Simulated scan of single mutants.
Amino acid sequence: MYPALAFLLLFFAGGRVPVNREFRPTPGGIPVFVVSNGFHTDIVVPVREPRTGTDWLQQLGQPQLTAQFSAHEYAAFGWGSERFYLASYGGRMPGVGTVLRAAGPGRTLMHVGFYQSAPRPGQHVVALQISADQYRRLTTLLQASFAPDSAGRAQLRNAAGYTPSDFFFRARGRYHALRTCNDWTAATLRRAGLRAPLKSPLAGPVLRQLRRSRAAAGQAPQ
C-alpha cells in the first residue's frame, strides 16, 4: 500500500519537481513550441529543418499529406488515448464512461497537425529555441512514439482528424491514468534534454517549467 501511495504522491506532486534544471534556450537555435488547449499538450516543430536534415513529411511517408501540406511550416505532435481521441470527433466532449475507460490501460494514437506558420506565444503557447543536438534527440523520440507497419512506415489510423489539417496515426505504448498525454510530453522533453516536470498528469506544469527556463535565461516568460 505504501509504495503505491508514494507513487501517487510523486505523480501528482511531480509537476513541481524540475528535471534538466540547467537547461537554457539556445540563442539562434531551432524553434520549437509546446502548445496546450488547457488540458492537453502538443510539441510543435518545423516541418523541415535544414540544420538537422529533418523532413517530417518524408518521415511520415504519406504522399497525400506531402501534397497537401508541403507549404506548411510547422507540425504538431501529441500522444494520447485512442478511446478519448476518437470519442472527441466533431468537437464532442467524451462522456463519463469514455473518460473512465480511458483511465485504464488502452491503445494509443499519435495526433499530428499542420500549421501554416509558427504558433503565436501566449497563455497556452511556450516558444523555445534549442540546439541541433537537442532537436535531433527530440526528433528521434517523436519518431519512436509511432507504431510502424511491417515496412517500418508510420500507420495512418484515420484519414481525417478534428479538422482538415490534423490526422491520427497508430502509436506505441499504453495510455492509463498514470501515463497521460501530458506525461508523455514531459517525458519526451526531459529525454531530449529540455527542462520539464518529473511527472505531470496535467498541462499546466509542463508549460510552467518551460517558462522558468526562459526566465532563467533572462527571456520574457510569455
Rank of each mutant, 00 (worst) to 15 (best):
Ala186Asp: 02
Val45Ala: 01
Leu142Cys: 06
Ala13Glu: 05
Val126Gln: 14
Thr52Gln: 08
Leu65Lys: 07
Val96His: 14
Leu9Tyr: 11
Ala154Met: 05
Leu10Glu: 06
Val17Pro: 00
Val45Arg: 00
Pro3Cys: 14
Asn182Lys: 01
Gln155Ala: 13
Met1Cys: 11
Phe146Asp: 06
Ser165Gln: 11
Gly218Leu: 12
Ser165His: 14
Gly122Gln: 09
Phe167Trp: 07
Arg136Trp: 07
Ala75Arg: 07
Arg137Cys: 04
Gly91Phe: 01
Leu109Tyr: 02
Leu128Val: 08
His40Val: 07
Glu49Cys: 13
Ala4Pro: 10
Ala171Cys: 06
Pro3Asn: 06
Pro148Tyr: 05
Pro18Ser: 08
Ser165Pro: 11
Gln123His: 14
Ala6Phe: 15
Arg51Asp: 09
Val47His: 03
Gly53Leu: 12
Arg51Cys: 07
Ala215Asp: 14
Ser213Tyr: 01
Gly218Ala: 09
Val32Asn: 02
Val35Tyr: 00
Phe146Ala: 06
Phe39Asn: 07
Leu109Gly: 02
Met93Pro: 11
His72Lys: 13
Phe169Asp: 01
Pro46Asn: 06
Pro50Ala: 09
Trp79Arg: 03
Val126Tyr: 11
Tyr74Asp: 02
Ala147Gln: 06
Gly38Ala: 09
Leu60Thr: 02
Tyr74Leu: 12
Leu128Phe: 02
Phe168Glu: 04
Leu128His: 10
Gly29Met: 05
Phe77Tyr: 15
Leu86Gly: 04
Asn182Trp: 02
Val47Cys: 09
Glu22Trp: 15
Ser36Asn: 14
Pro105Met: 08
Arg211Ile: 12
Gly29Phe: 13
Met1Ile: 15
Gly53Cys: 08
Pro201Phe: 05
Pro31Lys: 11
Gln123Ser: 15
Arg214His: 02
Ala151Leu: 14
Ala6Pro: 04
Thr41Met: 03
Ser88His: 04
Gly218His: 08
Arg48Trp: 14
His176Met: 06
Phe23Pro: 01
Pro94Val: 01
Ala103Asn: 03
Trp184Asn: 00
Phe33His: 07
Gly91Met: 11
Pro221Ala: 04
Asp149Ile: 10
Met93Gly: 12
Gly161Arg: 11
His111Asp: 06
Gly193His: 00
Ala67Arg: 14
Arg83Trp: 00
Ala144Tyr: 08
Pro119Asn: 06
Leu141Glu: 11
Glu82Thr: 07
Ala151Thr: 11
Glu49Thr: 07
Tyr115Val: 05
Leu189Asn: 01
Gly14Glu: 04
Ser145Met: 10
Thr180Trp: 03
Gly97Thr: 00
Arg157Asp: 07
Arg170Ser: 12
Thr185Trp: 08
Ala216Met: 12
Gly53Asp: 10
Val45Glu: 02
Phe167Asp: 00
Lys199Ala: 13
Leu198Lys: 04
